[in-house]
């Protein structure tokens, strides 16, 4: 009697479970169509950038403006909560392991362009508990803003200060919203995405486009004939904090 009742309840339970899953299955049937990359997309195995400060000098402002306008980056005038994808800071800050007491003052205070290094071996991706930040097949460190839980572990992990958290709703701080790109919402972390949305349409990153004098060189690090590799082959270049093993893919000509 007892066993029979138990069997009955088990069968009933399975049945009930099945009934409760059935409608969910039809809703989650998923999409029928197919996906494809854009027809004009610029593609690479491993996007990288060279920043040539000697050529960039005058375009710095234009580069940061172009990026922040394109991506609806809010202009929060508060160092604690500011959001930045690309910005400038003095050599003494960006390369603070490499400065010394007797350094040429002009050089120490000279402003350099900084952005996410799109590391080959990224700490942020290693620590993220949800894969909200991940490396895509073209070597770009992407943010999935739908998945980010706002734990800020990636900010503790990033040794370059390239990540910003939305401490509050960013919308009131965007002067003119670009209707073609989303904004972010309070509670998620954001950063430079090497303009993956522009690459998909066959356009170079907004900052590269704004550097009219060729101060920013963009290309495929895995292609020995790419422009980036040509510059790296012929010039002396450095990375920020190479000793940490993150292998930055933004190189500098000082």
């Amino acid at each position: 009697m007892d066993i029979n009742r138990r069997k009955f309840l088990k069968a009933g339970g399975v049945l009930a479970l099945g009934l409760s899953i059935a409608p969910a299955k039809s809703v989650l049937a998923g999409v029928k169509g197919k996906y494809a990359p854009g027809p004009n997309a610029l593609t690479a195995k491993n996007w990288a950038m060279v920043v040539d400060m000697n050529k960039l000098e005058k375009d710095v402002e234009a580069c940061t403006m172009a990026c922040h306008k394109e991506h609806n980056v809010p202009n929060i005038d508060n160092k604690k909560e500011e959001v930045k994808w690309i910005w400038t800071d003095k050599y003494g800050h960006l390369f603070h392991d490499n400065k010394h007491d007797f350094m040429n003052k002009e050089m120490e205070h000279r402003h350099f362009l900084a952005l996410c290094n799109q590391c080959e071996n990224p700490v942020c991706v290693r620590v993220c508990p949800t894969k909200a930040t991940f490396k895509n097949k073209e070597g770009i460190i992407m943010m999935d803003y739908h998945r980010c839980i706002g734990c800020r572990y990636c900010m503790a992990g990033c040794p370059y200060g390239a990540r910003s958290f939305n401490f509050k709703d960013p919308r009131p701080y965007i002067e003119e919203i670009n209707p073609n790109y989303p904004t972010r919402t309070k509670g998620v972390v954001e950063k430079c995405n090497f303009c993956s949305e522009r690459l998909a349409k066959g356009l170079l990153p907004a900052c590269v486009e704004a550097s009219t004098n060729g101060g920013l060189v963009f290309g495929d690090l895995d292609d020995p004939n790419s422009e980036v590799r040509k510059v790296l082959d012929t010039q002396f270049t450095v990375q920020r904090k190479p000793s940490l093993g993150t292998k930055p893919k933004v190189f500098y000509i000082l």
């Binding site: 998923g30 999409v31 996906y35 027809p39 991940f134 097949k137 992407m142 739908h146």
Partner: peptide, 19 residues
């Protein structure tokens, strides 16, 4: 579900076109 799948396709897989 379609929009959610689109997000995955665009952001995570780099496919921007839906056929």
């Amino acid at each position: 579900q379609l929009l959610s799948d689109w997000k995955v396709a665009v952001v995570r897989d780099g496919n921007r076109v839906y056929v």
